[in-house]
Write a protein that binds this DNA or RNA. Structure first.
Lengths: 214, 214, 214, 214
DNA sequence: CATGAATGAGACTTCATTCAT
DNA sequence: TATGAATGAAGTCTCATTCAT
């Protein structure tokens, strides 16, 4: 969705002046919703709040979305888009799957430690929006397969392995958000995940401890 | 579910005639709520539904609970009580911490595979009721410490280890509920968890594969 | 009410043992309601509260009253009965109407000062139960007429005079209950009422200041 | 709309187009509530009735008031505002405190005689809304003090005197509403009030009988 | 497009009243 | 008769959604 490809304009986004403003207002609404999701459960968010947070009138929302569901769906999509970018960026220069996986996990945890609001929003959206999971999965799966091919990983079913990576990462994020973080949390979690995937203790320690890219 | 054992009734006030009926209705309400939680998100459950599901009038609920919160709290407590019993039972005869942990994880997954409603209810309640997590934690922590003492486990922080066990178990339960289960799911997950905790591949395979008690 | 006369049993109160208990429970309910009326507005009193305050079950109320209205009506009657007694007693030995009126007003105010609960209950019932007014009126009217006959009072319409006496008395009671009482409140109010009825300043001061009977 | 007025607009927010309509609806709601208060006790009024009486949907009320209390409070304020105006108007040209007081009392009673609904609403609101009393008190106190200063009145405590004026006036209003009015009710009551405040019979009669301003 | 007033379904909660025990 | 569980109507309040301006 929202392919940012510079391909022939297929009728999706004709960029007039009016349309730029339209897009700006829309983003304002989605961002406002994101900010709210960071604070309260999805089911507790009223559209009037979203409108107020975005500094528009409640009726305005219905110029951009047909229904409440659509608003929340858009929020999921927006957050997912952000991930895709973030994750793609960070693993650009790393070829080793295990290393890429380690970087991914740690970056999620570090960001969660720094930005609880972001983490909360992410956790709630994953819980709420099925599509989110598969988006994350896509990235992780690549790393898992590369690690398996290179002999670094050793697991029976890639679905189960995927589950483990995602579960441990989100579980750790929740711990962080709930204030149960410990010194070196991200490294410890990553090490355990790697070992679960079949990496030896020594290698796991080394990979997990390697400094993060910028 | 789990027909209450024919043991001496430990409850406090079965003194009046009506008390048996009262208790029956209360259970009916809590069970109805449990059935609903298995089907929809906690925040989407209306008390009128609970009443209907329990085949009583809406007002009746308020003869037993003062508020919506109390109803949901009671559901959490009921499910937690069931766990305590179940878990205590199964680990009665096993002394090895790693083995007890493995049995615990697998039994949760097996039951989830067999009873999706139960699993769904559990997952939602864990997400909703903070107290639930600590209840499960208590049991797991004992096993973790025993495993560490006996040299079977090797981890740096027990909070992180606890997180991992719980996250992987609940994550796998969700997979099962969502229909992503695979052949031997429980054994695979358990094996990975054990390795994450520092158990060697060989031992992990052996422990995870041992047949479950009755 | 409850005339303990040893007269021919006219079918009203046949005094069996059971009937004594019945009457006791009934009084308990009415008294409980009175206590509550002292604390909250009539419309805010729930029958369950009355039952609890009377230490009986809610259902029991309906063995004595057919409806909520009946309960409240009984409360009005009970309070009225108490007045009749109280007022009759105090004016037994006084022949002068003005003096009797002064004593009556002051005793209401003094009791209000001493027992806010009683005053509150009375004020609320007067506001709620029309019958109450006429009961008080009966007593006051006698005094007014006597005062007029003896030349002490001088007013055009006895209804208006009656209104004035009752309004001033209840108004002063409310002031007392609301904490706006002043030193010698009862005497001041009485003096003003007497002057309004045509008594000279000197006489009014003298009458109002005369010590109350026991 | 309304932008080019040469006068400083005293109201705060008549800036948008919809504001005129908004104010109209709000008044409609308050007026509807007033009409209902004239008919039933405050505690018996359901917001759905108010909405129906105002010919809007129940939800609309909550676009204007946050809670039931606020609705009733607004009613009190509205009625109080009306008084302030009415009273200020009538006493504009009269300098004598006793005379102003007499006019005030009589106008209340005359209006009550002509408009029972208004009287009922006023009585109920005074009973319900503490703020109302002090508003009326303010006006009366001024007259009392002026009368005392000019030697027309003679009373010990102004709080007690205030009580007497208000009690007698509202008491008489209730009589009127209940159908116990008599010929020349307002004059009689006023005369008595004046005498209670220390005015001689002759002067009281003269002051009370003076024709009301238009 | 933006606005925000209006709507009405539906949620939670209270309470008078009934009725089986 | 006493009890208290059950009932269901009614009330307060919220909120997604519509629509005239």
């Amino acid at each position: 969705m929202l392919p940012p490809l510079p391909l022939p304009d297929t009728a999706t986004p004709p960029l007039t002046r009016g349309h730029k403003k339209r897009e700006r207002t829309r983003r304002g609404l989605v961002d406002a919703a994101l900010r709210l999701i960071a604070r309260k459960e999805v089911g507790e968010i009223a559209l009037l709040e979203v409108a107020t947070e975005a500094a528009v009138s409640n009726g305005t929302i219905y110029n951009y979305f047909r229904t409440r569901e659509e608003v929340l769906e858009a929020v999921g999509i927006a957050m997912a888009a952000e991930f895709s970018d973030a994750i793609s960026d960070l693993s650009a220069d790393v070829s080793c799957g295990a290393q890429r996986l380690a970087i991914g996990v740690r970056m999620f945890l570090c960001r969660a430690a720094v930005d609880h609001q972001w983490a909360n929003a992410l956790l709630r959206i994953i819980h709420f929006d099925q599509a989110m999971r598969s988006r994350l999965a896509t990235h992780v799966l690549g790393d898992l397969r590369e690690g398996l091919r290179s002999g670094m990983f050793c697991y029976e079913d890639e679905g189960v392995a995927l589950d483990l990576v995602l579960s441990c990462t989100t579980g750790a994020m929740r711990s962080i958000v709930d204030g149960r973080a410990v010194e070196g949390h991200d490294v410890q979690v990553t090490k355990m995940v790697l070992r679960a995937l079949g990496v030896s203790l020594a290698k796991a320690s080394k990979i997990a401890a390697k400094p993060l890219p910028v």
